Simulated scan of single mutants.
Amino acid sequence: MFIRCAFFRGRVKAGMEEAFDRHVHERLVPLWTRFPGALEVRVLRQVESDVSDPELAMVLAIRWASREDIARALDSPVRCESREVSKKLFEMFDGTVFHTVFSAGEFALSAS
Rank of each mutant, 00 (worst) to 15 (best):
E18H: 09
E106P: 12
G37Q: 06
A14N: 15
L39E: 02
V78R: 13
E17W: 00
A19P: 03
A6I: 08
K87M: 05
E81F: 01
V47S: 10
M92A: 04
S86R: 02
P77Q: 05
F98I: 09
A14D: 15
C5P: 11
A19Y: 07
E18S: 14
R4F: 15
H23D: 02
W32I: 00
Q46H: 12
S103T: 03
F107E: 09
R72A: 15
R11D: 09
E81A: 02
H99Q: 11
A104S: 13
S103E: 04
E40Y: 08
D50R: 09
E40V: 09
E17K: 01
P54S: 05
C80H: 06
F107C: 13
G10Y: 04
A6D: 07
V51C: 00
A19T: 07
G10R: 01
V51T: 04
E68G: 06
P30N: 07
C5M: 08
P77N: 02
V47E: 05
L44V: 06
L44A: 07
P54L: 15
F7A: 05
L39R: 07
L28R: 02
I62F: 03
R4S: 12
R4W: 11
V12A: 13
S103Q: 07
R83H: 11
R9M: 15
A108R: 14
S112R: 15
V51E: 02
L109D: 15
V101R: 07
V101I: 09
R4P: 10
H23Q: 06
V41A: 00
S110V: 13
G15N: 05
K13S: 13
E81Q: 03
R45D: 03
P36C: 08
V29F: 02
G10F: 04
A104N: 07
A57L: 06
F98T: 14
T96V: 11
W64D: 14
A38P: 11
E91N: 10
M16N: 05
D75E: 10
A19H: 08
G105S: 05
L60G: 04
T100Q: 13
E26Y: 09
E40N: 13
G95Y: 02
P77Y: 04
C80F: 00
V59I: 08
E81Y: 00
P36F: 14
L109H: 11
V51K: 04
M1V: 13
F20Q: 06
V47I: 10
A61Y: 07
V51I: 04
G105E: 10
F20K: 01
V101E: 14
V101K: 04
V29R: 06
K88C: 02
D69I: 10
V43P: 00
R9L: 15
R72Q: 13
A65M: 02
P77I: 01
P54H: 05
E48M: 13
S82M: 06
F98H: 10
G10L: 06
E68K: 13
E17A: 05
G95V: 09
L60V: 07
F93T: 05
E106M: 11
L31R: 05
R83F: 00
P30L: 03
S110N: 14
